[in-house]
Design a protein around this nucleic acid. Sequence first.
DNA 1: TCCAGTAAGTTCCTTTTTCGAACGCATTCA
DNA 2: TGAATGCGTTCGAAAAAGGAACTTACTGGA
Lengths: 147, 147
Amino acid sequence: MKWNELKDEACPVARGLSVVGDRWTLLVLRDCFQGIRRFDDFQTRLGITRHVLADRLKKLQDCGVLERKLYQERPPRHEYLLTEKGLALHPVLVSLVHWANEWTPQPRPGGMRLVSRTTGEPVEPLLIDRQSGEPLTPRSLRTRRLD
Amino acid sequence: MKWNELKDEACPVARGLSVVGDRWTLLVLRDCFQGIRRFDDFQTRLGITRHVLADRLKKLQDCGVLERKLYQERPPRHEYLLTEKGLALHPVLVSLVHWANEWTPQPRPGGMRLVSRTTGEPVEPLLIDRQSGEPLTPRSLRTRRLD
DNA sequence: TCCAGTAAGTTCCTTTTTCGAACGCATTCA
DNA sequence: TGAATGCGTTCGAAAAAGGAACTTACTGGA
Protein backbone atom coordinates (compact mmCIF):
# COMPACT_ATOMS: atom_id res chain seq x y z
CA MET A 1 0.00 0.00 0.00
CA LYS A 2 1.54 3.27 -1.12
CA TRP A 3 0.40 6.68 0.03
CA ASN A 4 -0.15 8.04 -3.46
CA GLU A 5 -2.27 5.08 -4.47
CA LEU A 6 -4.60 4.99 -1.48
CA LYS A 7 -7.47 6.28 -3.61
CA ASP A 8 -7.55 2.98 -5.50
CA GLU A 9 -7.67 0.76 -2.43
CA ALA A 10 -10.63 -1.45 -1.69
CA CYS A 11 -10.68 -0.28 1.92
CA PRO A 12 -12.84 2.80 2.46
CA VAL A 13 -10.60 4.02 5.29
CA ALA A 14 -7.72 4.14 2.83
CA ARG A 15 -9.85 5.91 0.23
CA GLY A 16 -11.04 8.42 2.81
CA LEU A 17 -7.52 9.12 3.93
CA SER A 18 -6.40 9.66 0.35
CA VAL A 19 -8.56 12.79 0.57
CA VAL A 20 -8.27 13.96 4.18
CA GLY A 21 -5.24 12.05 5.46
CA ASP A 22 -2.61 14.61 4.52
CA ARG A 23 -1.04 16.83 7.11
CA TRP A 24 -3.12 20.03 7.51
CA THR A 25 -6.01 18.96 5.29
CA LEU A 26 -8.54 18.42 8.06
CA LEU A 27 -7.51 21.70 9.67
CA VAL A 28 -8.20 23.50 6.40
CA LEU A 29 -11.63 21.88 6.35
CA ARG A 30 -12.26 22.84 9.96
CA ASP A 31 -11.73 26.46 8.93
CA CYS A 32 -14.06 26.01 5.98
CA PHE A 33 -16.81 24.85 8.33
CA GLN A 34 -16.17 27.97 10.37
CA GLY A 35 -16.76 30.17 7.36
CA ILE A 36 -13.21 30.87 6.19
CA ARG A 37 -13.06 31.26 2.43
CA ARG A 38 -9.93 33.15 1.43
CA PHE A 39 -6.34 32.14 0.96
CA ASP A 40 -4.81 34.66 3.32
CA ASP A 41 -7.38 33.99 6.02
CA PHE A 42 -6.55 30.28 5.97
CA GLN A 43 -2.89 31.09 5.99
CA THR A 44 -3.08 33.46 8.93
CA ARG A 45 -5.26 31.19 11.06
CA LEU A 46 -3.30 28.02 10.36
CA GLY A 47 0.24 29.38 10.33
CA ILE A 48 0.79 26.86 7.53
CA THR A 49 3.27 27.66 4.75
CA ARG A 50 1.63 29.27 1.74
CA HIS A 51 3.14 26.57 -0.41
CA VAL A 52 1.45 23.73 1.44
CA LEU A 53 -1.81 25.66 1.70
CA ALA A 54 -1.93 26.18 -2.07
CA ASP A 55 -1.24 22.48 -2.56
CA ARG A 56 -3.98 21.36 -0.15
CA LEU A 57 -6.58 23.72 -1.58
CA LYS A 58 -5.79 22.46 -5.04
CA LYS A 59 -6.05 18.81 -4.03
CA LEU A 60 -9.35 19.46 -2.28
CA GLN A 61 -10.71 21.12 -5.41
CA ASP A 62 -9.45 18.29 -7.59
CA CYS A 63 -11.32 15.71 -5.57
CA GLY A 64 -14.48 17.79 -5.36
CA VAL A 65 -14.48 18.67 -1.67
CA LEU A 66 -13.98 22.38 -2.27
CA GLU A 67 -15.11 24.62 -5.08
CA ARG A 68 -13.14 27.66 -6.22
CA LYS A 69 -15.43 30.52 -7.10
CA LEU A 70 -14.75 33.94 -8.55
CA TYR A 71 -16.05 36.62 -6.22
CA GLN A 72 -14.45 39.63 -7.92
CA GLU A 73 -13.03 40.49 -11.35
CA ARG A 74 -10.15 42.86 -11.91
CA PRO A 75 -8.10 41.63 -10.29
CA PRO A 76 -9.60 38.15 -10.34
CA ARG A 77 -10.16 36.85 -6.82
CA HIS A 78 -11.44 33.48 -5.78
CA GLU A 79 -12.93 32.00 -2.66
CA TYR A 80 -13.04 28.39 -1.52
CA LEU A 81 -16.38 26.88 -0.62
CA LEU A 82 -17.40 23.47 0.66
CA THR A 83 -19.29 21.38 -1.87
CA GLU A 84 -21.95 18.87 -0.91
CA LYS A 85 -19.20 16.26 -0.82
CA GLY A 86 -17.22 18.50 1.53
CA LEU A 87 -20.19 19.19 3.78
CA ALA A 88 -20.66 15.44 4.08
CA LEU A 89 -17.36 15.28 5.98
CA HIS A 90 -18.99 17.09 8.90
CA PRO A 91 -19.60 13.95 10.97
CA VAL A 92 -15.91 13.03 10.73
CA LEU A 93 -14.89 16.38 12.19
CA VAL A 94 -17.62 16.33 14.82
CA SER A 95 -16.60 12.83 15.93
CA LEU A 96 -13.00 13.92 16.15
CA VAL A 97 -13.88 17.03 18.17
CA HIS A 98 -15.94 14.99 20.57
CA TRP A 99 -13.18 12.45 21.05
CA ALA A 100 -10.55 15.12 21.62
CA ASN A 101 -12.73 16.91 24.17
CA GLU A 102 -13.35 13.69 26.03
CA TRP A 103 -9.90 12.15 25.88
CA THR A 104 -7.16 14.74 25.40
CA PRO A 105 -6.03 17.26 27.99
CA GLN A 106 -7.92 20.53 27.84
CA PRO A 107 -5.88 23.68 27.70
CA ARG A 108 -6.68 26.31 30.26
CA PRO A 109 -8.47 28.60 29.98
CA GLY A 110 -9.67 28.23 26.41
CA GLY A 111 -11.55 25.03 25.75
CA MET A 112 -14.03 24.79 22.90
CA ARG A 113 -17.35 22.97 22.98
CA LEU A 114 -19.92 21.96 20.43
CA VAL A 115 -23.24 23.63 21.18
CA SER A 116 -26.61 23.83 19.48
CA ARG A 117 -26.81 26.86 17.25
CA THR A 118 -30.39 27.47 18.30
CA THR A 119 -30.41 26.74 22.02
CA GLY A 120 -26.74 27.20 22.86
CA GLU A 121 -26.90 23.99 24.87
CA PRO A 122 -23.92 21.60 24.77
CA VAL A 123 -24.32 18.68 22.46
CA GLU A 124 -23.18 15.09 22.86
CA PRO A 125 -22.64 13.39 19.51
CA LEU A 126 -23.74 9.77 19.26
CA LEU A 127 -23.46 7.54 16.22
CA ILE A 128 -26.48 5.33 15.55
CA ASP A 129 -27.85 3.23 12.72
CA ARG A 130 -30.47 5.23 10.84
CA GLN A 131 -32.76 2.22 10.42
CA SER A 132 -32.70 0.62 13.83
CA GLY A 133 -31.73 3.61 15.92
CA GLU A 134 -29.23 1.41 17.74
CA PRO A 135 -25.86 2.90 18.76
CA LEU A 136 -22.97 1.72 16.59
CA THR A 137 -20.09 0.22 18.58
CA PRO A 138 -16.95 -1.74 17.73
CA ARG A 139 -18.76 -4.88 18.88
CA SER A 140 -21.96 -4.30 16.94
CA LEU A 141 -20.21 -3.76 13.59
CA ARG A 142 -18.04 -5.57 11.17
CA THR A 143 -16.94 -4.95 7.60
CA ARG A 144 -17.97 -7.16 4.76
CA ARG A 145 -16.43 -7.50 1.32
CA LEU A 146 -18.84 -7.46 -1.56
CA ASP A 147 -17.33 -9.20 -4.56
CA MET B 1 0.44 26.65 14.58
CA LYS B 2 3.16 24.03 14.32
CA TRP B 3 2.61 20.35 13.73
CA ASN B 4 4.56 19.23 16.77
CA GLU B 5 2.65 21.56 19.05
CA LEU B 6 -0.87 20.70 17.96
CA LYS B 7 -1.49 18.84 21.21
CA ASP B 8 -1.43 22.14 23.11
CA GLU B 9 -3.89 23.96 20.89
CA ALA B 10 -7.23 25.17 22.18
CA CYS B 11 -9.01 23.72 19.16
CA PRO B 12 -10.09 20.11 19.66
CA VAL B 13 -9.64 19.32 15.97
CA ALA B 14 -5.98 20.25 16.31
CA ARG B 15 -5.61 18.19 19.48
CA GLY B 16 -7.30 15.23 17.83
CA LEU B 17 -5.04 15.44 14.82
CA SER B 18 -1.98 15.59 17.04
CA VAL B 19 -2.86 11.96 17.81
CA VAL B 20 -4.37 10.59 14.60
CA GLY B 21 -3.32 13.16 12.00
CA ASP B 22 -0.06 11.54 11.00
CA ARG B 23 0.34 9.62 7.81
CA TRP B 24 -0.56 5.93 8.41
CA THR B 25 -1.82 6.35 11.98
CA LEU B 26 -5.51 5.89 11.19
CA LEU B 27 -4.69 2.92 8.99
CA VAL B 28 -2.85 1.32 11.88
CA LEU B 29 -5.92 1.89 14.04
CA ARG B 30 -8.19 0.46 11.36
CA ASP B 31 -6.17 -2.75 11.56
CA CYS B 32 -6.42 -2.71 15.35
CA PHE B 33 -10.21 -2.59 15.10
CA GLN B 34 -10.00 -5.59 12.78
CA GLY B 35 -8.11 -7.57 15.39
CA ILE B 36 -4.51 -7.15 14.24
CA ARG B 37 -2.14 -7.14 17.21
CA ARG B 38 1.36 -7.95 16.06
CA PHE B 39 4.12 -5.93 14.51
CA ASP B 40 4.69 -8.13 11.50
CA ASP B 41 0.99 -8.45 10.79
CA PHE B 42 0.59 -4.68 10.70
CA GLN B 43 3.64 -4.42 8.51
CA THR B 44 2.49 -7.01 6.00
CA ARG B 45 -1.05 -5.66 5.72
CA LEU B 46 -0.04 -2.01 5.45
CA GLY B 47 3.09 -2.31 3.34
CA ILE B 48 4.41 0.49 5.55
CA THR B 49 8.13 0.60 6.36
CA ARG B 50 9.03 -1.07 9.62
CA HIS B 51 10.68 2.13 10.70
CA VAL B 52 7.52 4.22 10.39
CA LEU B 53 5.39 1.47 11.90
CA ALA B 54 7.59 1.29 14.99
CA ASP B 55 7.34 5.07 15.32
CA ARG B 56 3.55 5.13 15.02
CA LEU B 57 3.02 2.30 17.47
CA LYS B 58 5.25 4.03 19.96
CA LYS B 59 3.42 7.35 19.61
CA LEU B 60 0.07 5.64 20.00
CA GLN B 61 1.29 3.95 23.18
CA ASP B 62 2.68 7.22 24.50
CA CYS B 63 -0.65 8.97 24.16
CA GLY B 64 -2.61 6.07 25.60
CA VAL B 65 -4.46 4.89 22.51
CA LEU B 66 -2.67 1.54 22.36
CA GLU B 67 -1.31 -0.67 25.09
CA ARG B 68 1.74 -2.91 24.60
CA LYS B 69 1.28 -6.20 26.34
CA LEU B 70 3.60 -9.13 26.84
CA TYR B 71 2.00 -12.27 25.44
CA GLN B 72 5.02 -14.56 25.70
CA GLU B 73 8.28 -14.64 27.63
CA ARG B 74 11.52 -16.12 26.28
CA PRO B 75 11.84 -14.55 23.85
CA PRO B 76 9.76 -11.58 25.02
CA ARG B 77 6.96 -10.84 22.55
CA HIS B 78 4.44 -8.05 22.74
CA GLU B 79 1.10 -7.33 21.18
CA TYR B 80 -0.68 -4.02 20.68
CA LEU B 81 -4.20 -3.60 22.00
CA LEU B 82 -6.68 -0.75 21.84
CA THR B 83 -7.28 0.94 25.17
CA GLU B 84 -10.60 2.51 26.13
CA LYS B 85 -9.27 5.77 24.72
CA GLY B 86 -8.45 3.99 21.48
CA LEU B 87 -11.82 2.26 21.26
CA ALA B 88 -13.42 5.69 21.63
CA LEU B 89 -12.02 6.61 18.22
CA HIS B 90 -14.41 4.14 16.61
CA PRO B 91 -16.96 6.78 15.55
CA VAL B 92 -14.25 8.73 13.72
CA LEU B 93 -13.33 5.69 11.63
CA VAL B 94 -16.95 4.72 11.05
CA SER B 95 -17.81 8.24 9.89
CA LEU B 96 -14.84 8.22 7.54
CA VAL B 97 -15.78 4.81 6.13
CA HIS B 98 -19.32 5.94 5.53
CA TRP B 99 -18.19 9.12 3.80
CA ALA B 100 -15.74 7.25 1.59
CA ASN B 101 -18.36 4.69 0.58
CA GLU B 102 -20.83 7.42 -0.27
CA TRP B 103 -18.51 9.87 -1.98
CA THR B 104 -15.41 8.23 -3.40
CA PRO B 105 -15.31 5.89 -6.38
CA GLN B 106 -15.74 2.24 -5.50
CA PRO B 107 -13.20 -0.17 -6.83
CA ARG B 108 -14.51 -3.16 -8.69
CA PRO B 109 -15.07 -5.77 -7.66
CA GLY B 110 -14.06 -5.46 -4.04
CA GLY B 111 -16.04 -2.87 -2.11
CA MET B 112 -16.37 -3.08 1.65
CA ARG B 113 -19.51 -2.30 3.66
CA LEU B 114 -20.33 -1.84 7.29
CA VAL B 115 -22.82 -4.44 8.41
CA SER B 116 -24.38 -5.41 11.70
CA ARG B 117 -22.39 -8.18 13.36
CA THR B 118 -25.59 -9.88 14.48
CA THR B 119 -27.95 -9.53 11.52
CA GLY B 120 -25.44 -9.00 8.72
CA GLU B 121 -27.64 -6.18 7.45
CA PRO B 122 -25.97 -3.06 6.06
CA VAL B 123 -25.78 -0.16 8.44
CA GLU B 124 -26.18 3.55 7.78
CA PRO B 125 -24.35 5.65 10.36
CA LEU B 126 -26.08 8.82 11.52
CA LEU B 127 -24.79 11.31 14.05
CA ILE B 128 -27.34 12.61 16.53
CA ASP B 129 -27.38 14.47 19.83
CA ARG B 130 -27.74 11.99 22.65
CA GLN B 131 -30.14 14.23 24.60
CA SER B 132 -32.50 15.49 21.93
CA GLY B 133 -32.08 12.73 19.38
CA GLU B 134 -31.83 15.37 16.67
CA PRO B 135 -29.39 14.83 13.78
CA LEU B 136 -26.27 16.97 14.02
CA THR B 137 -25.60 19.04 10.88
CA PRO B 138 -23.25 21.87 9.96
CA ARG B 139 -26.20 24.24 10.37
CA SER B 140 -27.40 22.98 13.71
CA LEU B 141 -23.99 23.25 15.39
CA ARG B 142 -21.46 25.83 16.29
CA THR B 143 -18.39 25.87 18.52
CA ARG B 144 -18.19 27.93 21.64
CA ARG B 145 -15.15 29.01 23.57
CA LEU B 146 -15.31 28.56 27.31
CA ASP B 147 -12.94 30.94 29.05
C1' DT C 1 24.93 -29.63 15.75
C1' DC C 2 23.56 -26.83 12.03
C1' DC C 3 20.26 -24.49 9.43
C1' DA C 4 15.79 -22.27 8.53
C1' DG C 5 12.10 -19.81 10.49
C1' DT C 6 9.65 -16.42 13.52
C1' DA C 7 8.98 -12.00 15.92
C1' DA C 8 10.16 -7.42 16.75
C1' DG C 9 12.57 -4.15 15.96
C1' DT C 10 17.11 -1.01 14.37
C1' DT C 11 20.42 0.97 11.08
C1' DC C 12 21.75 3.24 6.95
C1' DC C 13 21.07 5.71 2.85
C1' DT C 14 17.90 7.85 -0.66
C1' DT C 15 13.78 10.31 -1.98
C1' DT C 16 9.80 13.05 -0.86
C1' DT C 17 7.49 16.57 1.99
C1' DT C 18 7.44 20.38 4.63
C1' DC C 19 9.37 24.73 6.49
C1' DG C 20 10.54 29.62 6.24
C1' DA C 21 11.35 33.51 4.06
C1' DA C 22 11.43 36.24 0.01
C1' DC C 23 9.62 37.47 -4.45
C1' DG C 24 5.93 38.52 -8.24
C1' DC C 25 1.91 40.58 -10.08
C1' DA C 26 -2.33 43.09 -10.61
C1' DT C 27 -5.08 46.33 -8.62
C1' DT C 28 -6.94 49.88 -5.25
C1' DC C 29 -6.38 53.48 -1.91
C1' DA C 30 -4.17 57.68 0.26
C1' DT D 1 4.23 57.95 -5.73
C1' DG D 2 4.11 54.60 -2.37
C1' DA D 3 1.70 51.41 0.58
C1' DA D 4 -1.64 47.90 1.04
C1' DT D 5 -4.46 43.86 -0.47
C1' DG D 6 -5.00 39.20 -2.29
C1' DC D 7 -3.06 35.08 -4.11
C1' DG D 8 -0.02 32.75 -5.19
C1' DT D 9 5.32 30.87 -6.79
C1' DT D 10 10.28 30.09 -5.99
C1' DC D 11 14.28 28.55 -3.50
C1' DG D 12 17.45 26.41 -0.24
C1' DA D 13 17.32 23.96 4.25
C1' DA D 14 15.24 20.69 7.47
C1' DA D 15 12.21 16.93 8.63
C1' DA D 16 9.72 12.78 7.38
C1' DA D 17 9.07 8.64 4.79
C1' DG D 18 10.73 4.91 1.71
C1' DG D 19 13.58 0.65 0.92
C1' DA D 20 16.58 -2.83 2.02
C1' DA D 21 19.64 -5.18 4.96
C1' DC D 22 21.00 -6.33 9.68
C1' DT D 23 20.34 -7.76 14.78
C1' DT D 24 18.78 -10.44 18.67
C1' DA D 25 16.74 -14.28 20.81
C1' DC D 26 14.59 -18.04 20.65
C1' DT D 27 12.14 -22.76 18.39
C1' DG D 28 11.84 -26.77 15.64
C1' DG D 29 13.52 -30.00 12.29
C1' DA D 30 17.33 -32.67 9.59
